[in-house]
């Protein structure tokens, strides 16, 4: 049974459709990455799943039960880590953790004990009694994450938990999330960092303009572009129309085209050297060709026509 099942979730703000029929599932012990640029609908989706926002349509099932039927029960199963630092800077890390533990329904003693465990797990025991306002960005992010874990949720919703922190702090958080997955926790992880999605997530959903464009494991998504064959050609493509070249459309799929660069993937299973030969025989003076494995960015490019970093 899925820990989380989201079925055709939709939300509009006036004329703007923020989320349009998003469906996904998160299994126990799985990290599902929701990848998309800013404004794609990731946070709106998480807000609806966590009950902060009323969906216009669609249903959320948590551990097989409808969220709408018993929201409090669903909230006991979930832990939500918001994108912003939703912690009290005047209080210490320990006080923040204990407070959110009490709010999650733990007794005073349980909250204290769990806080001690989490401070150790987040390597913050030494600074636990200091006010959060004296923490570094990475330490604040870790406390922000810890505040959602007091009640040992089976399902964790992480909304871009590594935004704005240095690489080392990011690595610490990613390792901690990996440890959570190892305990059987299901995680819905939104991000716009390709590397995080590629390295951390078992399955990835690509979202843009509120629509889930594709989902699957990384190899499944790469397969959409022809497995491991993506060619980057450098030439003067100004005033050229590759689609009009004879036989080109049948053999190659254009991922991206600019005046100086053309990124294509091969259609079908052919030897890369054959593909290379075909590309060099095109009616354009090619200056350089690179063969590379398709990245999530290439998948995103192919799906949306623009780079994720744009």
């Amino acid at each position: 049974m899925s820990l989380l099942k989201v079925d055709r979730l939709s939300k509009s703000f006036g004329a703007s459709r923020a989320v349009d029929g998003v469906s996904l599932e998160v299994q126990p012990g799985e990290i599902y990455g929701l990848l998309g640029p800013n404004g794609a609908g990731k946070t709106t989706s998480i807000s609806m799943i966590s009950g902060l926002l009323q969906p216009d349509a669609g249903e959320v099932l948590v551990a097989g039960h409808s969220f709408a039927a018993d929201p409090q029960k669903a909230k006991r199963i979930m832990g939500v880590v918001p994108q912003e630092l939703a912690i009290y800077e005047e209080l210490s890390g320990r006080e923040n953790l204990e407070f959110w533990g009490r709010i999650a329904g733990l007794s005073r003693n349980d909250a204290r004990e769990r806080t001690r465990e989490l401070l150790a797990a987040l390597t913050l025991t030494d600074r636990g009694n200091d006010p959060v306002k004296t923490y570094s960005g990475g330490m604040k992010r870790r406390i922000n994450l810890g505040c959602a874990l007091l009640h040992r949720p089976q399902l964790i919703l992480l909304d871009e938990p590594t935004v704005g922190i240095d690489p080392q702090a990011r690595q610490n958080i990613l390792e901690f999330i990996g440890q959570l997955r190892a305990t059987g926790t299901g995680i819905l992880y939104t991000t716009h960092y390709l590397e995080e999605a590629e390295n951390l997530c078992q399955r990835i959903g690509i979202i843009d303009h509120g629509r889930l464009l594709a989902e699957g494991t990384l190899p499944e998504l790469q397969e959409r572009l022809g497995g491991d064959r993506v060619f980057v050609m450098e030439a003067n493509f100004e005033n050229t129309a590759p689609d009009a070249w004879p036989g080109f459309r049948e053999r190659f799929r254009i991922i991206q085209k600019s005046d100086r660069q053309l990124v294509v993937s091969a259609i079908g299973t052919r030897d890369p050297s054959d593909c290379l030969r075909e590309l060099l025989s095109l009616p354009v003076r090619v200056e350089n060709v690179t063969l590379k494995r398709p990245s999530l960015n290439d998948v995103f490019l192919q799906l949306t026509g623009r780079e994720l970093r744009e």
């Binding site: 009950g51 902060l52 929201p71 409090q72 918001p82 939703a86 912690i87």
Partner: peptide
């Protein structure tokens, strides 16, 4: 603005 009120709402109905 600190998002602590919405965070509270993720834990309590």
């Amino acid at each position: 603005s600190l998002r602590t009120f919405p965070r509270y709402q993720t834990l309590q109905t």
